[in-house]
Design a binder for these strands. Structure first.
Length: 454
DNA sequence: TTTTGAGTTGTTCGA
DNA sequence: GTCGAACAACTCAAA
């Protein structure tokens, strides 16, 4: 008996409930479907996905199976996969975002009519959305009470699962001919330099972080000049690591070493934020498109294209912003502190619509995430549910001096400033795109007007 | 039902 | 130089 396992953004073999469940039934035929949503991914995300599928394909081939790549409508591709595999069951992880959930529900109906069962398993999130609710049964919209409930809810231990038997059925396209996932040419260079992609690389990153970064995480996580963060965001985005595995690994480190208690919980809290963003998206499926506070719907956003271009290319004249934007372009990743500063600069100093910033991040981040990114942008813009107060405007110079005290981060990404004395590296350039003090005052006036509006 | 306490990440100003 | 207050009310979540 054979069973199909449908991979999507859960590109791993370990701690994969759908794979484990399928393996208990029969020999596994794995498939990945490039549908319209995959075709719409940003460039950096497509680069990562291509690398990740290659890695997963190797991992499966090494165990005697073959990852089949199909292109087109999900229901049609899965129907074909079931027919080719001679299977009447397809297992997959339940989607973590509403759009994918709708695709799964539609596919499940269509497949059922053909006598094929689509079986969905939790595992993409630490807890199912319904499991973390307020006393009144509603979704949380404020983080702190959410976190109180969340961190007190037990993460289940991993189930023992026998190694799957893989069936070597071949009916998909080869990765090389996968036209919707083109190789990113010159752009891919910086990405290649920066990242090792796939489950094995992700496990290495996790272990390295637990060994070297966890104990000091609370202190160093805000420092873009230091290797203080885990850099696990793309691994969680693409599911090379299950969030439960990361959670358990950090819990284990805390139990083994009291010195990891503070840093460990600071990190787990970040996993809590990841989860919280999914709750907010679930309550507001149009989070990426609409202001949660409708008072901002009439906001007078600036639309000057050349200003936007200077932000994208890292030529605003504010060193921390420019370094961050160049790190993003070169590596497909940006330090969390810099994401806040760069986003705040676009939204508050340049007063450009947060959705234009979101679109750029979506196109350039290897960890571009449909739940976390719109959540983060609405938080910075002050248009979200549990957003930053509108008068919180990041000062890019002050942030630079505080979190990159020696200007090492500036020197790394802005070589033209590397020769400056350290105390001058954060000074604005000669012709900054705006004057921060003026821009701040203008932003406060505009935000005050919209924040009070219903 | 009403009340109460609390709320990721910051900056500036004036004492 | 350092420190606390102001920034602005508002909504959420739980008692």
């Amino acid at each position: 008996m054979t069973v199909v396992v449908w991979f999507r953004d859960d590109l791993r073999l370990a701690d994969h409930p759908a794979l484990d469940a399928a393996a208990a039934v029969g020999a596994v035929v794995p498939v990945f479907v490039a549908d319209a949503a995959v075709a719409a991914l940003g460039g950096a995300a497509r680069w990562w996905l291509r690398e990740a599928l290659t890695a997963l394909g190797h991992d499966i081939a090494a165990r005697g199976g073959h990852l089949n790549l199909l292109q087109g409508d999900v229901a049609e591709c899965l129907s074909r996969a079931a027919a080719e595999a001679g299977a009447d069951e397809i297992h997959a992880l339940a989607a973590r975002i509403p759009a994918d959930r709708a695709v799964q529900e539609g596919a499940a109906r269509q497949l059922a009519a053909e006598g094929v069962r689509l079986v969905l398993h939790p595992g993409a999130l630490l807890h199912q959305l319904q499991a973390i609710r307020t006393g009144a049964g509603a979704a949380y919209s404020v983080f702190t009470p959410f976190w109180r409930r969340f961190s007190a809810t037990e993460i289940l231990p991993p189930r023992e699962a026998p190694a799957p038997q893989w069936a070597d059925r071949r009916f998909g396209e080869s990765l090389a001919r996968f036209s919707q996932l083109p190789l990113a040419a010159a752009w891919g260079e910086g990405l290649h330099e920066t990242w090792a992609v796939g489950e094995a690389a992700a496990v290495q990153r996790l272990e390295a972080f637990v060994a070297d970064g966890l104990a000091d995480y609370a202190r160093t996580r805000d420092r873009p000049d230091l290797p203080g963060t885990s850099r696990l965001s793309p691994d969680l985005r693409w599911g090379h690591l299950s969030p439960a595995r990361v959670w358990r690994r950090v819990q284990m480190a805390i139990a083994a070493d009291p010195g990891c208690e503070t840093g460990g919980w600071a990190f787990l809290r970040q996993l809590g934020w990841r989860e919280f963003a999914h709750h907010v998206l679930d309550a507001h499926p149009d989070l990426a498109a609409r202001n949660l506070k409708p008072g901002f719907d009439a906001f007078p956003w600036q639309t000057d294209r050349s200003t936007l271009a200077r932000w994208k290319s890292g030529e605003t004249g504010y060193p921390l912003v420019d370094a961050a934007m160049r790190e993003l372009w070169r590596t497909g990743w940006m330090h969390n502190r810099c994401r806040m500063v760069a986003a705040s600069f676009l939204v508050k100093d340049l007063r450009q619509d947060w959705r234009t910033g979101l679109a750029w991040f979506d196109d350039t981040l290897v960890d571009a995430d449909p739940a976390l990114d719109p959540f983060g942008w609405q938080w910075v813009a002050g248009t979200g549910a549990d957003a930053a107060p509108y008068f919180r405007v990041f000062n890019p110079v002050a942030q630079g001096k505080r979190f990159d005290p020696d200007g090492d981060y500036i020197a790394r990404w802005l070589p033209e400033r590397a020769d400056l004395p350290r105390d001058l590296r954060h000074a604005p350039g000669p012709r900054p795109v705006v004057d921060h003090d003026d821009a701040r005052r203008a932003a406060l006036a505009d935000w005050k007007r919209s924040a009070g509006r219903e």
